[in-house]
Design a protein around this nucleic acid. Structure first.
Lengths: 245, 245
DNA sequence: CGCAGCCTTGACCATTATCAACGCTGGTGG
DNA sequence: CCACCAGCGTTGATAATGGTCAAGGCTGCG
C-alpha cells in the first residue's frame, strides 16, 4: 500500500527534471502534482498488483472497474480490429496512469510487456478519492491533456510520416517516457519486440527491421543488442524524424 | 456574453439524446455537465468571437492565451510537418471545446472551415473559472478522456485500416459530432473539402475521390452534392468500416 | 546440442501516391 | 445574361513505398 508513495521514480527527482520533447512541459506523473499528505490518503485506497509478461491489466469490452498507476515494468495499450490487426496506441512505464475512460466499459486493452507492478484503485471509489484529494482531479486533467498532445503527434506520425521518419521519431521520443530506467546518453532501451514497434508505428516487422538495418548501415545508429539501440548522430536522426531533409 | 448559455445546441436537448458511437457515452458538451448558475458565472468571463472561413483560432507555436467553446460553424485542428504535410487531428463543431494544452504554447493549429462563432476565455483566468465553478474541471476531464478515446480510434484507423475502411469509418462517425446540424437519417453533411478529408484520414484527395466513387458505384452511397452524402446501406458500410468483410 | 521463437534479408506484389488531363461549378465581369 | 475563368473534384496512367511470402540466421533456454 505504500507503493504509490515510495515508487522509485514516478515521484522522484529524475522525472521532474526532464522536459517533454513534444510540448515542452515537464514530464508529469500524478504523484508529482500532489503533496505528501494527499499521497498518503491515496495510498490508503491503493491495492498493490503485479502482472507477468503478457498478462492483461485491462481488456477492451470489460466493465471498467479499475484504474492503475504503473510502478515498474512496461505496458502496451492497444486496440484490435475483428481480423486481428492491432494498433498499439501507447507504451506505459513507471509513473504512468491507465484506465481512465468515459463509459462503463474499457475501450482499449492493456497488457504487461515485462513483469509489471502497479497500484490498483477501484473506480467505484473514484468519487471518494476526488473528495479526499481534489488536486487529484487537476493532476489527472493535466495528464489527460498531455496524453492528448502525444496522441496528436502520433496521428501526425501515422497519417503523414514515412517509415524512416516513424522509426526515427520513435527512437527519439521513447527515452522521454521510460525515465525509470537510467540509460547512458544516446542509449535507447527497447523492452518491446519488433512486432510491437511495428504495431505502434503502423508498419510491419519486416519494414521495422529493414529501416533499422539501413539506419545502422548509414551510421546513424548502432544496434548494441536486439533490445538496445545507440543513437550515433542525434541531429541527423532528428532531421529525419521531422522530415527536414 | 450570453452566447455560452444560449447557444442553440451545445446546451440543448439534441446533444443529450445521442450516444457516442465510439465509447457508448452520451455526447458531451461542457455545458451539459454544468447547471444554470455555473453557466451564468462562466458567461461573465466569456468573450464572443467570430472567425471567417479560413481564419485561425489557434496557431501552433503561439503563446497559449485562450481557450474557445465553439458555438457555431466547423473547425479543423491540425499539425504540420516542415515540408507542409498536414495531419488534421480532428474536426470541431458547435459545443466543442478547444485550446486546452499543457505548456505555454499551443502544440496544434485550429482554423475555421466555415464561418465560426465561439466563446473565448482567457487562459489567465482559468484558475478563477475553476474556483468559481469547480464542476468545470470535472467536465473538462470527462471531455478530455472522451477525446483521448476518439484519438485512439483515429490511431487505429490511421495505422491499420485500408483506404476504404477509413472512408467508411469517417462517414459513419462524422454525424455524431455535428449534432448542431439536423440531418435526415442517413444524410451526412461534409463541411470540409476533399483535401481536408484526405488530411484527416492520412490519404490523398485522389484516393478519397476514387473510394467515394467506388462506394457510389457499389450502391452503398449516393453523392447528393459535393457536400452531402447519403448512406444507402449502413450495415454494409459499418461492416466495411470494421474490416468485417 | 537442438529446438523454438524472433529477427533479418531477399524477391515479388499490391495498395496507394504521383503526375496529368479533363470536367464541373460558382462567381465575376463584359 | 452569358461567357469565361479559377478552383475544386474526378478519372486515368504510371510509379513507388511498404506489404507479403519465403528462406535463412541468431539467440536463449531446456
Amino acid at each position: 500500500m505504500i507503493e504509490l508513495r515510495s515508487m522509485p521514480t514516478a515521484c522522484g527527482e529524475r522525472r521532474r527534471d526532464q522536459a517533454c520533447s513534444q510540448c515542452g512541459a515537464r514530464a508529469l506523473s500524478i504523484c508529482n502534482s500532489l503533496d505528501g499528505a494527499d499521497l498518503q490518503r491515496l495510498d490508503a485506497l491503493a491495492e498493490r498488483a503485479s502482472f507477468a509478461a503478457g498478462e492483461a491489466l485491462i481488456r477492451e469490452g470489460d466493465e471498467a472497474r479499475n484504474v492503475f498507476n504503473i510502478t515498474s515494468g512496461s505496458v502496451r495499450v492497444f486496440k484490435l480490429l475483428a481480423d486481428g490487426r492491432r494498433q498499439i496506441t501507447g507504451f506505459l512505464f513507471a509513473g504512468d496512469f491507465v484506465g481512465l475512460a468515459t463509459g462503463d466499459t474499457y475501450v482499449f486493452s492493456a497488457e504487461a510487456i515485462e513483469p509489471v507492478t502497479a497500484c490498483r484503485f477501484r473506480k467505484a471509489e473514484y468519487r471518494n478519492m476526488i473528495r479526499e484529494c481534489p488536486s487529484l482531479e487537476t493532476a489527472l486533467l493535466e495528464r489527460a491533456t498531455h496524453e492528448l498532445a502525444a496522441a496528436q503527434n502520433q496521428m501526425l506520425l501515422l497519417g503523414r510520416k514515412t517509415a524512416t521518419e516513424r522509426i526515427a521519431s520513435f527512437l527519439l521520443d521513447l527515452p522521454a517516457h521510460d525515465l525509470a530506467r537510467p540509460m547512458p546518453a544516446g542509449h535507447v532501451h527497447l523492452p518491446m519486440s519488433r512486432s510491437e514497434i511495428a504495431d505502434y508505428l503502423g508498419l510491419t516487422i519486416e519494414t521495422v527491421s529493414r529501416v533499422l538495418s539501413r539506419l545502422k548501415t548509414q551510421g546513424l545508429l548502432k544496434l548494441a543488442s536486439l533490445n538496445e539501440v545507440v543513437v550515433m548522430q542525434p541531429r541527423k536522426l532528428r532531421a529525419l524524424a521531422e522530415g527536414d531533409i
